[in-house]
Amino acid sequence: MENKMRKVTWSPFAHSGNSVNMAMLDVIISLIPVIIASVLFFRMGSVLVLLTTTASAVAFEYISRLVLKRYNSCQDLSAVVTGLILGLTLPPSTPLIIAVLGSLIAIVVVKQLFGGIGNNVFNPAAAARAFLLIAFSVPLTNWVNPMTSTYVDATTSATPLSLVKTVMMNIKTGDMEAARTAYSVIESNSWGLIKLLFTGEVAGSLGETSAIAIIIGLIYLIVKKRIHTEIVTSYVGSAFLVTVILSLVYDLGPLFPLISILAGSLLFGAVFMATDWVTSPMTKKGRIIFGIGLGVLTIVIRTFSNFPEGVVFSILIMNMVTPLIDRHTGNRIFGKVKVKSNEKK
């Protein structure tokens, strides 16, 4: 028996070097263009809200881990990501105390009570955003104009999303005349509107306004292989398809679907919230179903419900369905012949 003891363990004896920190860091990097755009357009409002949500999210993460007597998980950066995404879904004029409450709900209730990163059933940022929207509907639907920081007046100007919403509400109530009038506002300047929606110089939540910034982030994430592209494509694709059908049925012109995809937080939600690893299905088939469900629900809620936006609700609903999707879309195991599920029922 020699003195030196060899190390014995089990294969494999190599690791790809991939880690959760790096993944989270990539998400943060991909958020930078969006953050820059929001600071450009909303100035101090943006900076304050983002700083508040991020700092409070990290603080709550630290405190709750301390109280639960678990290892400190702040260094995995997931709290930063949650804080940033939550902040980017809020309007620039959000009272800071509400932003802090949002972080509390997101980190403590939705994430840590379920056991921390990897365990949450609902997307923390989406759940917190929906919670705040129901709890404080007035401050969370007060929009400010970009650059000027003045409040949007509901009668004269409006967010692109509210223009779309007006059209849809009128269709729902059957008042086609009013719908057409409302639509003419969009139609008169549709290319201009699309341009604004791409650059982001419109009223809205901090992160959702600039499509270009979001797409840059998306490309970064795709290059780094940090997101499942099938969710983004099936989400945006199915939402687009539904609006195309709507605009064909109600004769709303060719640009309407494009505008309603770009308006609101659909793109932001599709890229940064729906693709959250933890709360989306684990197989490709499941993710496509997930995305289609999101797209249809978003447009349905956005069009027909009391709420101006359907993204967070549809994300919450599909999060809820995820365990069921996961169970029924398991991969066919190598060499196993598929059991016909019809025969059982």
């Binding site: 959760v20 990163i117 990897g118 499942h228 690893w277 989306s280 684990m282």
Partner: peptide
């Protein structure tokens, strides 16, 4: 060893 983050890789 951390919690599974369901990245599905």
């Amino acid at each position: 060893e951390l919690q599974c983050v369901r990245c599905s890789s």
